[in-house]
Amino acid sequence: MQPLPTQQSGAFTLAYLPDQHILIGRWLRPVLLHELQVHYRELLAAALAHDHCRHWLLDVRRRRINDTEAVHWFGQDFSPQLPQLLGQPVVVAYFAMVGQDVATTDPALWENIRQGSLHGAAYCYFDQESTAMSWLAEQP
């Protein structure tokens, strides 16, 4: 695993698994929208720097995943540009806490998942990191 530099290492870490061609982003604490935007831009920059890596494991256990503004920004501004920038749709496994799955019932999150799938992207939530990694390995 290759750790990658980030602007806010106390809030977000980033690593690349070259043998599996997977980027791993981990939030270490709750973040504000502007911080989240910086982190996703760092993730995209790392993806572009690593041969357009489009398989991502995002550990969201320590941050809110149903923040309305963040969900809107991700779904409307950030994720629609990914297929063009990466050359293929992105595949994202979200590693969330067992109790955090309640947040995934948010209609805005499901709309992002639906919109992403229209463009070939795949977003899926898991409560076990090993299951998330297995799922990523199975994706084209």
Rank of each mutant, 00 (worst) to 15 (best):
137 A>P: 03
107 P>E: 11
24 I>E: 13
81 Q>C: 03
89 P>M: 08
23 L>H: 06
94 Y>M: 02
52 H>C: 15
65 I>H: 11
58 L>I: 15
91 V>E: 02
4 L>N: 08
42 E>Y: 10
77 D>V: 14
99 G>S: 09
112 N>S: 13
120 G>L: 04
71 V>G: 01
117 S>D: 12
7 Q>P: 01
138 E>V: 03
52 H>N: 15
51 D>A: 15
93 A>R: 02
41 R>G: 01
99 G>K: 05
89 P>N: 07
33 L>C: 00
2 Q>M: 06
127 D>E: 10
114 R>L: 11
91 V>S: 03
53 C>W: 00
56 W>P: 03
125 Y>Q: 04
25 G>P: 10
103 A>R: 04
20 Q>P: 00
109 L>D: 02
33 L>W: 03
19 D>K: 09
87 G>K: 04
32 L>P: 00
60 V>L: 13
68 T>P: 02
61 R>F: 12
71 V>P: 01
112 N>H: 06
83 P>I: 07
74 F>V: 12
139 Q>P: 01
126 F>E: 00
75 G>L: 13
113 I>L: 09
76 Q>S: 07
19 D>M: 01
67 D>L: 13
32 L>G: 01
138 E>P: 00
131 T>R: 10
77 D>N: 09
41 R>Q: 14
44 L>I: 07
84 Q>H: 10
127 D>I: 14
6 T>M: 06
62 R>C: 06
100 Q>Y: 10
30 P>K: 04
53 C>G: 00
